[in-house]
Amino acid sequence: MTSDTVAPAAAASGASATERFFADKASSAAATPTERVDLLAREVLDAVHATIRRHKVTYEEYNALKAWLIGVGQDGEWPLFLDVWVEHVVEQVATESREGSKGSIEGPYYVPGAPEPSAGTTLPMREAEKGTPLLFQGQVRSVSGEPLAGARVEIWHADDDGYYSQFAPGIPEWNLRGSVIADEAGRFRIHTVQPAPYQIPTDGSCGKLIAAAGWHAWRPAHLHMKVSAPGHHLVTTQLYFTGDEHVFDDIASAVKPELILDPRPTGDGAGREVTYDFVLDPA
Results as ranks from 00 to 15, higher is better:
Asp24His: 03
Asp38Arg: 14
Gly269Cys: 09
Glu91Ile: 11
Asp281Ser: 03
Ala158Thr: 10
Thr192Arg: 01
Tyr110Trp: 15
Ile210Tyr: 06
Lys130Met: 07
Met1Glu: 09
Glu258Lys: 06
Ala252Lys: 06
Tyr109Thr: 08
Ile210Lys: 06
Trp215Glu: 11
Arg126Cys: 03
Ile52Phe: 08
Thr266Gly: 00
Val44Ile: 11
Leu239His: 08
Tyr62Gln: 08
His216Thr: 07
Arg187Trp: 03
Ile200Met: 09
Asp249Thr: 00
Lys226Ala: 11
Val274Phe: 04
Ala229Val: 02
His157Glu: 06
Thr34Tyr: 02
Tyr198Trp: 13
Tyr163Ile: 02
Ala7Arg: 15
Ala7Ser: 13
Leu82His: 13
Val279Glu: 09
Arg272Ala: 00
Trp215Phe: 10
Phe167Glu: 04
Leu65Ser: 11
Leu280Ser: 01
Ile155Asp: 00
Lys256His: 12
Glu35Ala: 12
Val235Glu: 01
Gly204Glu: 09
His246Ala: 04
Thr34Glu: 08
Pro8Lys: 07
Ala212Cys: 10
Pro169Lys: 07
Glu35Phe: 00
Arg189Met: 06
Leu39Cys: 09
Leu280Tyr: 03
Val279Ile: 11
Gly145Asp: 14
Val6Leu: 13
Pro263Arg: 03
Ala168Glu: 10
Tyr198Asp: 12
Arg219Pro: 05
Asp183Asn: 14
Ala31Asn: 14
Gly178Tyr: 07
Tyr198Arg: 15
Glu99Ala: 10
Pro124Gly: 12
Pro33Trp: 03
Ala149Trp: 02
Gly14Asn: 05
Phe241Thr: 00
Tyr163Pro: 01
Asp160Glu: 13
Val57His: 08
Ala31Met: 10
Thr122Glu: 10
Val72Ile: 12
Arg98Cys: 05
Gly162Pro: 11
Ser228Phe: 05
Thr237Ser: 15
Ala252Phe: 09
Val140Phe: 03
Tyr110Gln: 10
Thr202Gly: 11
Leu82Val: 09
Thr18Asp: 12
Thr132Met: 06
Ile190Leu: 06
Trp78Tyr: 11
Glu60His: 07
Glu77Arg: 05
Glu35Ile: 01
Leu123Asp: 02
